[in-house]
Simulated scan of single mutants.
Amino acid sequence: MIRVLLADDEPMIRAGVAAILGAAGDIHVVAEAGDGHEAVELALKHRPDLCLLDIRMPRLDGLRAAAELGRMVPESAVVMLTTFSEDEYIASALGSGAAGFVLKSGDPRELISGVRAVAEGGAYLSPSVARRVISHLGTGQLGRRATARARTRELTGREREVLALVGSGLSNAEIARRLHLVEGTVKAYVSQVLARLGVKNRVQAAILAYEAGLVPEE
């Protein structure tokens, strides 16, 4: 069971997210917080597997709360809840310690996939968020696209398949089912892909997959 702490200053958002997570069957919300300061306090108390944080919260926003959690509760992974209007926060937070970004208005399946992927020790970037981040980066997009295509061209066909599915937000288990492989084999492929591309985590791999055109537009 994946133990999650949920932090958002809007009670209705918390209730909706908690209901979605609870329906997954393997995810349990152990505590809810209305601001970042309370989230840190509850994380210290409950030691959850994962903290799901809204970016904009009173007293202590999600980004600063994520930094505090990284120092005080490093065993708890962090996934950020965001909206389209917060692209600049996403772009600046990719290196802040958060392992995932999920849209509040996105498909509930993305939320569940993101929580599972990060709980497995990976990272997750909602496909819609990935496209917005790449767009937000602005100038130099064509150059990055050519570079990304050149880097991914060195991968094997199977590695490119795995990278594309990572870019689509699938967890290792979901990729295994899609490609008819065992999960351990997928985990090994993901590790190989990250190493060959020289990226640190699945978030960076997902962005590279989008830049290289491996993930189809919705």
Score class of each variant (00 low, 15 high):
M1Y: 11
I2N: 01
D9N: 13
G16D: 01
A18S: 14
A23K: 14
A23D: 15
I27T: 07
V29L: 04
A31H: 11
A33L: 07
D35F: 01
D35A: 09
H46P: 08
R47T: 12
P48G: 06
D49H: 13
L50D: 05
C51W: 00
R56C: 05
P58G: 09
L63T: 05
R64K: 11
A65F: 06
A66R: 05
E68P: 07
L69I: 15
M72R: 15
M72F: 15
V73T: 08
A77C: 12
V78R: 00
S85M: 03
G95A: 10
G97K: 04
G97L: 04
V102E: 00
S105I: 04
S105F: 05
G106C: 10
D107P: 02
E110V: 02
L111D: 00
L111E: 04
I112K: 00
R116Y: 09
A117G: 06
E120K: 09
G122F: 05
S128K: 09
V129Q: 00
R132Y: 10
V133D: 03
G143V: 15
R144F: 09
R151E: 15
T156A: 08
L163N: 04
A164T: 09
A164D: 06
L165H: 10
V166T: 07
G167D: 08
S168A: 15
A173W: 05
L179G: 11
V182A: 12
E183P: 11
A188C: 09
Y189D: 14
S191H: 13
A195W: 04
G198L: 07
V199W: 02
N201S: 13
R202I: 04
L208T: 14
P216W: 06
E218D: 11
